[in-house]
Design a protein around this nucleic acid. Structure first.
Length: 574
DNA sequence: GCCGTTTTCGGCCCGACTGTTTTCAGTCG
């Protein structure tokens, strides 16, 4: 048996799905492969283990056929049906359907009628005017494809959640001033608060669609109008962000908001369920035959389908509809549940503010507590503190604690985990702190086994309370370290170590799926901003978004505790 | 290929927009 990861298996199935799709295979069969691929990506179960134990079909979306394919993959080290289809259809063709406006049917035509094998071939054929001669292609299509190709080559990147939130606020503000605009809302992945946002989806209620469309396309940030119809307009902004605007009537607004929020897979499941109830769900409403059911709010749709209300953050087809039907959705944590912030930096290391300024900012947010966790000595680039500086810092905290009786200032540290898993301060020093966060800032390129055992060794230190940014990723910049997160989670559960959701907009680490996994193992989570400036305290909302997407409840999170409970928790641990 | 609060077989979401169609296919979300 070969050593293939879930990700590699998922990749093979995805590739197989794409090639089958281009070859005109039954679309439900194609969907089954895509779906299985996605479910495997989202699963924390080791496929190889499942295969050995004959339990592959426990993953929803994997049945007899795909289970057999997966077993074949493990036996051969490659995917036989995939290799077979590759003999006929080169994989380069798959890239073609990444180009907007080019789907499986046209890719099929391009390959079988013009021998186009990849994007480079496609570009040449376009320039030579060979495309327009195909049946179903005309000069207009050619022109659009040329534009789409240029767009594709420029590669419009997804933007970070906080950028999308800020940018959309600008657009929303503009829209709110429109005279025909009655209501405005964010939708799509933006409303679901995904960590990366491809395009901004915005919904407007109005009695005058055309008026809103004209007003929208007159926004100064519009660089190009991609498409414009009665109810839908798409534009590209001068910052290369695509914005899709949908306009509906007030009456249609709840159903439109549900539809436009997605995810696509969630909507699919929901519409299937509606069908079972003898109803039809679309973006205009919920219908029984011709009759439109009265909807005041989006929640009424879920109610009509005998489901508890599902918050947007959970709408990813990760089991939320079944949970809502059984009445055991999580009671999702909210920002108001947060009682303090347990990871931040002051001027004692690389922060911008004095501890007192940070205390004031924490009080202004209504927190009961905060933990000052500056860097330890070996992290020179961040002015890591010597034991002597830490000593001074503790004295300063004592002094401030005298002054403030309405907030608790925890003496903390973000101690570096060394290459071999030992910590940057002695146990004697750590024992005198209220809170110890351990994290990795060096040696990112160690192999999987080294990094994993390194973190596990740190967790086994009885003074360590939290592992910060456990995966070490920087969104769009640095991949997570090669890490056996499953082992980390299991060991965290055993040692009672918390894992962090680092709420920095550039990190959001742990990610939502890992958080969900940690919760299933009973690991406690701390949502921390890792602030280096008091403005960053507001990032807490982003961390909470990740927690909500990760199915967390208030009780899964330590910084929702009242101060007395938190102190007990930390002492028990320490 | 998957799946089951009408089913182990017969279903599998639904509509907008575009361009090329002479009534609709392809793509997208």
């Amino acid at each position: 048996m070969s050593e293939l990861t879930n990700k590699e298996i998922a990749g093979m199935l995805r590739e197989l799905a794409g090639l089958l799709e281009i070859n005109g295979e039954n679309r439900y069969r194609v969907r089954a492969y895509y779906n299985a691929s996605r479910k495997i990506m989202e699963s924390s179960e080791d496929l190889k283990k499942l295969a050995k134990e004959g339990r592959l079909k426990e993953i929803p979306g994997i049945g007899e056929g795909i289970a057999a394919t997966i077993r074949e993959i493990f036996e051969n080290g490659y995917c036989p049906p995939l290799e077979e289809i590759k003999g006929e259809l080169p994989t380069g063709v798959l890239e073609l359907i990444q180009i907007p406006g080019l789907g499986p049917k046209r890719a099929h035509q391009l390959f079988y009628e013009l021998g186009i094998q990849d994007v480079a071939d496609f570009k040449r054929a376009l320039e030579q005017g060979r495309i327009r001669k195909l049946k179903g292609f005309g000069p207009k299509t050619e022109e659009n494809l040329l534009k789409a190709l240029q767009e594709y080559e420029r590669y419009r990147e997804a933007i970070l959640l906080f950028q999308a939130l800020n940018y959309s606020e600008e657009i929303l503000n503009y829209l709110r001033k429109g005279k025909d605009v009655i209501r405005v809302a964010r939708a799509g992945s933006l409303r679901r608060q995904k960590e990366l946002i491809g395009d901004l989806d915005i919904l407007v209620a109005s009695k005058n669609n055309r008026g809103v469309m004209e007003y929208f396309t007159a926004w100064p940030g519009v660089q190009e109008v991609l498409l414009q119809g009665e109810s839908k307009t798409s534009i590209i902004t001068d910052e290369q962000v695509q914005v899709d605007l949908r306009v509906v009537s007030e009456e249609e607004f709840p159903a439109a908001l549900q539809y436009f929020t997605g995810s696509k897979e969630h909507n699919l499941r929901l519409r299937e369920r509606a069908k079972k109830f003898g109803l039809k769900l679309n973006e205009y409403g919920l219908f029984k035959g011709e009759k439109r059911l009265k909807l005041e709010r989006e929640a009424d749709i879920y109610q009509a389908l005998e489901l508890d209300y599902i918050i947007p953050e959970l709408r990813e087809d990760r089991g939320e509809i079944a949970a809502a039907a059984r009445g055991n959705l999580p009671e999702s944590v909210s920002l108001e549940d947060i009682r303090g912030d347990l990871h931040m930096h002051s001027r004692f290391s690389d922060g911008a503010h004095t501890i007192e300024e940070m205390v004031e900012a924490a009080r202004a947010r209504g927190y009961q507590y905060l933990a000052i966790t500056d860097h330890s000595q070996s992290l020179r680039v961040a002015h890591g503190m010597t034991p002597e500086t830490l000593e001074e810092e503790m004295k300063e905290i004592d002094r401030l604690q005298e002054k403030y009786d309405d907030i608790t200032i925890l003496k903390g540290i973000e101690v570096d985990i060394d290459y071999d898993g030992s910590l940057d301060y002695s146990d004697e020093i750590l024992s005198r702190l209220d809170l110890v966060i351990a994290s990795i800032h060096t040696g990112f390129n160690q192999d999987r086994e080294q990094i994993t055992t390194r973190i596990i060794k740190a967790m086994e230190n009885p003074y360590v309370n939290i592992i910060a940014h456990p995966q070490g990723r920087i969104l769009k910049k640095r991949r997570a370290y090669d890490l056996d997160l499953e082992r980390i989670i299991k060991r965290a559960a055993e040692t009672g170590t918390c894992l962090e959701i680092n709420a920095s907009p550039y990190r959001l680490d742990l990610d939502d799926l890992s958080v969900k996994r940690a919760r299933e193992e009973g690991v406690k989570i701390a949502i921390n901003t890792d602030s280096h400036h008091i403005n960053e305290f507001a990032d807490m909302a982003l961390g909470v978004a990740v927690a909500r997407r990760g199915w967390l409840e208030k009780d899964d999170i330590i910084n929702t505790m009242e101060i007395d409970d938190l102190l007990k928790f930390l002492n028990w641990r320490g």
